[in-house]
Amino acid sequence: MSKERSAEYRQHVEEATVFVSRSVGFVPRAAVVLGSGLGSVAEAIENPVVIPYGEIPHWPLSTAPGHKGRLVAGYLKGVPVVAMQGRLHYYEGYSMREITFPVRVFGGWGTEVFFATNASGGVHYGLLPGDLVLVVDHINLMGANPLFGPNEDDWGPRFPDMTLAYDKKLMALAEEVALRESVNLKRGVYIAFAGPSFETSAEIRMARVLGADLVGMSTVPEIIVARHMGMRILAVSCVANYAAGMTESPLTHQEVLDEMGRAADRLTRLVVGIVASLGEEGR
């Protein structure tokens, strides 16, 4: 990306930030990204301000099934929050900078916590469809990085450290909430492929050798940009199915949506509990 296009991108981010800030009227403590079939979590938000993506200047539109494509801002147990009811994917044809555009807006808005959820395939043999997994690290096999091009130094450093991208205190908080809510929350490493084709059996065997427990087509670019902007990061994945080659059944996106629907109640309780606990943290 040239310096001219980078400057234009920054201007677009700033215009979108001003728009959502004025529309909502408060700064969210946390931004929650809701993955495939998980948009129902937004229904728990009180006093919601709903903004379709198409109304936000320069905001890319979500086209994936199970993603409504709107921002929902309001309160969860008194804590100001904004939820993306549908994310953007690299496989939709957007650039890495476009799919992470919302994360730049959240960072510029002053949002402290970036909380991603997603649907995934279970790579580890100990994971079952419906399991909720706390992402503790990731592997980027998408073939691109959203930080390519000129760096905006006031957004973040040229070479951001990813060693501790996932906030340890937030992970501990998530596990405390899971215990309190009787939600079984496991730990795992997420590996991201570009998609949209599901992975081959050989690719899943490779992922397992590399140390991955979960596989998906999103989230990692968002995490990289959230880390670049200095946000605290938490990610929870819901296992929608066994990864390729682990069963005789072909993989379908409908299977993903169906399993996410069954997990929505548990994930909603977990998300609400975690966000509510943010209000009790020392600031």
Rank of each mutant, 00 (worst) to 15 (best):
V27E: 11
E8L: 14
T247C: 06
V103C: 02
P60R: 08
P48K: 08
T100R: 03
N241M: 07
P129A: 11
K68S: 13
E248P: 01
N118K: 02
S95L: 06
D137I: 08
K3C: 07
S218L: 00
R227D: 02
R262M: 12
V136M: 05
I45W: 14
D153N: 08
E112K: 15
E8I: 11
S21Q: 15
G122I: 07
S218D: 01
E14I: 14
G188C: 13
I99R: 01
F148N: 08
P48Y: 05
M217V: 01
G245D: 07
A165M: 06
T100F: 02
T17K: 11
S2Y: 04
V135L: 08
R22T: 10
E255V: 04
L38N: 12
P196C: 07
F198N: 02
K169P: 00
M231W: 09
Y190E: 13
V220Q: 09
G69N: 12
P196H: 10
H67V: 02
L257I: 04
I99W: 00
A64W: 00
A64D: 00
D154W: 11
A243Q: 04
E92G: 02
H67A: 07
I139Y: 11
L170K: 08
P160K: 12
G107S: 03
Y190S: 10
V209Y: 13
E15W: 03
D153Q: 10
H124N: 15
I51Y: 09
V81M: 07
I51W: 03
L141Q: 05
S182W: 00
G143A: 09
V225D: 00
L127T: 03
L88G: 00
S21D: 12
D131S: 14
G108V: 02
T163N: 07
Q254I: 00
G216D: 01
L141S: 10
V81T: 12
P80I: 04
R283I: 08
G279S: 11
H12C: 06
L257N: 11
E222R: 03
S249H: 14
F198K: 05
H253C: 00
L173Y: 05
E92D: 02
V136T: 15
T100Y: 02
P150Q: 01
D161K: 14
G216V: 01
E248D: 15
Y75N: 02
L132H: 14
G211W: 06
L179S: 13
